[in-house]
């Protein structure tokens, strides 16, 4: 896919809605397409968080591996959603595993390049943080609700 096509693809996504063409060009230059088969690991807990992903199609499970129970899925990320924000926060390591559970097509964005650009451009930094913060807050809120164990009744 050439840069113009990638640019157009990103521009259609709500996450990039309203971002300036200059920044969209910059992100498109750091973007590439990737495909994952079911059960294929997209990233692994503890590894360097060097990319984030726009899910074009498919479903990805965010998992924690436990010695006694195996992988425990915390949440699933679906078509249209953004996968990965550990690349924003020092020490830039994935906090969970991400595993495709359906054939999954993504746009992978090189986070190292983006981080460097953000360090040099406060406006870009603000733009991206402003877009990622609601995602982080929504996932925190969802996790809090999961912790409530709403459907459990003590007998």
């Amino acid at each position: 896919m050439n840069a113009a096509s990638m640019n157009a693809l990103l521009a259609e996504h709500p996450f990039f809605n309203g971002i300036s063409s200059r920044y969209l060009d910059l992100i498109a230059q750091a973007a590439s397409e990737a495909r994952y088969e079911p059960r294929e690991l997209i990233f692994h807990e503890g590894d360097e968080a060097s990319e984030f992903h726009v899910i074009r199609r498919g479903k990805v499970a965010i998992e924690i591996f436990t010695p006694d129970r195996g992988p425990v899925a915390i949440e699933t990320i679906n078509t249209g959603e953004i996968l990965g924000w550990s690349w924003l926060i020092d020490p830039y390591r994935w906090l969970f595993d991400a595993q495709a559970i359906e054939p999954t097509e993504v746009i992978a964005i090189n986070a190292i390049q983006i981080r460097e650009s953000m360090a040099a451009d406060a406006v870009l930094s603000n733009e991206l943080l402003r877009r990622f913060t609601p995602i982080i807050v929504a996932r925190l809120q969802a996790t809090r609700m999961q912790l409530l164990d709403l459907y459990h009744v003590d007998n």
Binding site: P38, K59, A61, I62, R69, G70, P71, V72, A73, I74, E75, T76, N78, I101, E102, A142, M145, Q146, D149, L150, Y151
Partner: peptide, 14 residues
């Protein structure tokens, strides 16, 4: 489902 261990391939989350 709020919590998933094992072979569930569906949605996880609230």
């Amino acid at each position: 489902v709020d919590s998933s261990v094992g072979r569930w391939r569906g949605n996880v989350g609230v």
